[in-house]
Design a protein around this nucleic acid. Structure first.
Lengths: 221, 221
DNA sequence: TTTCAATCTTACAATTTTTGTAAGGTCGGC
DNA sequence: GCCGACCTTACAAAAATTGTAAGATTGAAA
């Protein structure tokens, strides 16, 4: 989950931001002073930081200097260009002057996450005890990792992305062929067979259900 | 040299920007319409683009869609939040409303170049016993320093920047080619092989894991 | 110019994945 | 319960990917 740290001693603004961010699906952690902020950063390693400048304890500038590796968006009432320029050159990723529109803040958060993360947020799919991490190309069943080939991985991913739905053979073929150009229906069956076997070895159950004449889907129980 | 593209049909503003940027030591290329901008981008590959929205030919929005891989700062007279939000989500790196202060623009340019070039602000990356200092161009394994070539360094940096994630071969090639222009997949394998060897000599372990058919990632343990 | 390191290319063996076919099993309609 | 169509699995050939070595090429420093 993408976690955003809100560092602001103004409880009212902080609460407002927290609500908005949570509604967008971000995790939120908070700090109310500069010293607290540095501790929070080292302990929780959030993915992005919203930093108010007027803080008790360490000033916002001091906090910024000690935070490296995570984008920091400054939220401040100071509108002077010198302030903006100084902090941006000091390492801030963006600078918004209060009052700002929530929509703009959210958009700028997306921009920063896009930029810093570079490879996109990790996409993790879960179904029963199967956990599939698309970015890492990892699959776990319970605690045991299992190794899947590229094609098997693509099949499982597509099925897990659409649980409760039947995935047609033609759709499977289409998606798979993005990676492996030529793939006949006969081969698809083999891949599914191998996938089943690997899942069964690790999880003991047959997770894939054939839907006669149509395709396949994940077995609910 | 860092080259910035100015895309604006207003000659007066364009000239002003060009003067300021050149004084800062940037190279400048210019385009005066949307179509021209796309051609310019493909031919010259600037490091950053300043894009005015009101353009003859293709609109600014259209231009933005066709430009990938280079940060675009929008310069516009439109102050509506919806415009900002839309373009930021569409891929713009930043959005400044006219009239803006030159100093702020320059600072935001620095931010973008810093972000894009260094792939984030973290200067020191750590993974297991490997420590990579991007700024100093140093790599240590435990206490022993090791020497890496430019390409090997770039590969290791990208991998360490995204631990737990598979870095695709194509992405590796793309990022490496910023430093070493011609590099085929065959060469990449050789670089990785050499990198592995050096890491193994110093650290005793094989830190890089191949993910079959996809790319490479750092080995967790 | 000579030298040296870094990089690119080619080649090849070891390994892994994909594929097609063939031999059973299972499902659903009749 | 029977039959054909479909699904499952096993196996082996074919194709693709990877790791490494060795030689060629480039480019910068002495």
């Amino acid at each position: 989950m993408t976690t955003i740290a809100i560092i602001d001693d103004d409880v009212y603004i902080g609460n407002m931001l927290e609500t908005v961010l949570q509604k967008e699906g971000y995790g939120v952690v908070r700090a109310y002073s500069g010293t607290e902020a540095v501790l929070l950063f080292e302990k929780q390693k959030p993915d992005l930081i919203l930093l108010d400048l007027m803080l008790p304890g360490l000033s916002g500038e001091e906090v910024l200097k000690r935070i490296k590796g995570v984008p920091v968006i400054i939220l401040s009432a100071k509108t002077a260009v010198e302030d903006k320029v100084g902090l941006l050159l000091e390492g801030a990723a963006d600078y918004l002057t209060k009052p700002f529109e929530t929509a703009e803040l959210l958009a700028r958060i997306v921009v920063q996450l896009r930029c810093g993360g570079a490879l996109g947020a990790a996409e993790v799919l879960r179904f029963r005890e199967i956990v599939l991490d698309a970015a890492a190309y990892d699959v776990f069943i319970g605690d045991t990792a299992i190794h899947l080939t590229k094609t098997e991985f693509a099949i499982l991913k597509l099925l897990m992305k659409n649980p409760k739905q039947v995935v047609t053979k033609s759709l499977l073929l289409e998606r798979i062929s993005e990676e492996t150009p030529d793939c006949m229906e006969s081969s698809l069956k083999v891949h599914i067979s191998n996938l089943r076997k690997k899942l069964k070895e690790a999880g003991g159950a047959d997770y894939i259900e054939a839907v006669w004449g149509i395709g396949f889907k994940m077995r609910e129980s």
